[in-house]
Design a protein around this nucleic acid. Sequence first.
DNA 1: AATACGGGGTC
DNA 2: GACCCAGTATT
Length: 347
Amino acid sequence: MSEHFSKDLLAWYDQFGRHDLPWQTDMTPYRVWVSEIMLQQTQVQTVIPYYLKFMASFPSVLDLANASQEAVLAHWSGLGYYARGRNLHRTAQIIRDEYGGQFPADFDTVVSLPGIGRSTAGAILALAFKQRYAILDGNVKRVLCRYDAIDSWSGLPKTHEALWQRADSLTPLERFDDYTQAIMDLGATLCKRSRPMCERCPVAAGCVALKENRVKFFPVSKPKAEKPTRETLMLVCRNAQGQIALQQRPQTGIWGGLWSLPEFNDEESLRNALANTYCEADLVEWPKFKHTFTHYHLWITPYYWCLSDSLDGLSQSNWVWFDLSQAFALGLPAPVRKILENGDYYV
DNA sequence: AATACGGGGTC
DNA sequence: GACCCAGTATT
């Protein structure tokens, strides 16, 4: 099955692949290199105008090496990942100073250059020097994860290395340059992240995910990091008029600027804060409950404290008294509303 | 092994 | 608003 992979892919590429991208004409090592750097984590349509301007200003590796870093970075402005631009400039100078202005043609030298990793080196060697090296970019990963129905995240070291081996084993013994472009074209135009067009895919016959009707489950997404758990105490302090105390939260951080219940890290801080007026019988702990944010879980323990008449004059820093209806009109955080809506507090 | 780097597209 | 993209370098 898989010996047909490259043959079927190449036949499709000849008819349906992209053959007119700016860096596909006059494929010198320099032009291929610049395109591969710009295309790292950056989509083709974004790169094209940058590439054209860059090549117009720096037509050769020596033009680039002799330019100022400011001039180079000016051409990178808006592309993002500016280390790419700095590395590109540095590498041009290395090529000028150490390789006589000639782009090196062996893998180990190329991959040692700043900003060039295994995949980019493979692409340069295959596309510009017609040597048999595999690539493993986002497109290839997606294609292979679906084709083999790889059910672990591609960032796991074992999975990543297995993908490299698979990428290499599928690379044919001839036409490596076309194959390199072909598998990227497949990933970019048919085997897209969302709504892949499997009905047009030249290697659909061997695709395990498609055979099992599970294409949408691949590639397996990165496991979400375990959310940390934090804890807080919220005090419902009610005076003789039935008002409750609120504090305005700091502008930064969670619920920035919102009015909320007074909070304490633990029961000890709560008791310390109330030390002068504290009346044991009136402080009641309620069952804790969990509130989940995008990035952490927050366990909230509500405490209910009903002030007797004699303490109505209590002036705690930053506390402001509100009627319940006023409080809700302020727009409280969801878990605070949940606490205050609990009728058990007011019986 | 995890994270920073970045602007733009997609759902 | 999370997730992803023609990845690499750094911690």
